[in-house]
Simulated scan of single mutants.
Amino acid sequence: MNQRASTIYIDDSNFYLEVYLDPFNKRIRIDDYRGNINLLMEKAEELVRKYQAEKLIMKARSEDFLHLYEKGLQPEAVVERYFLGSDAHFFSKFYTVERKKNDHWITEDGMIHSIYQLNTTIDKPFPPKEYELKKADEACAEELSGLYRQVFQIYPTPLHDPEYVKKTLMEGTIYYVYFYQGKIVSAASAEVNSFYKNAELTDCATLPEHRKYGLMKIILRELEGELKRQGIFCAYSIARSLSFGMNAVLYQLGYKYRGRLMNNCYIYDKLENMNMWVKNLANC
Rank of each mutant, 00 (worst) to 15 (best):
N2C: 02
T7D: 05
F15C: 04
L17K: 01
L17I: 15
L17M: 12
L21Q: 06
F24N: 04
I37T: 11
M41K: 09
K50R: 06
E54V: 05
E54Q: 14
A60M: 14
D64Q: 09
L66Q: 08
E80G: 06
A88I: 08
A88Y: 02
H104Y: 12
E108Y: 15
L118H: 13
T120D: 11
T120G: 11
T121D: 07
D123M: 06
P125C: 04
Y131K: 03
L133Q: 11
K134T: 00
E143M: 08
Q150I: 00
F152T: 05
Q153K: 14
T157Y: 09
P158L: 08
L159I: 15
L159V: 15
H160W: 10
Y175S: 13
V177F: 13
I184Q: 06
A188M: 07
N193Q: 07
K197N: 08
K197P: 03
A205K: 04
K212G: 06
E222Y: 11
E222Q: 15
L223T: 08
I232G: 00
Y236A: 09
L242M: 11
F244C: 07
G245K: 14
L250K: 10
Y251R: 05
L253K: 04
N263V: 04
C265V: 14
Y266N: 02
L271R: 14
W277P: 03
K279I: 03
L281S: 04
C284T: 06
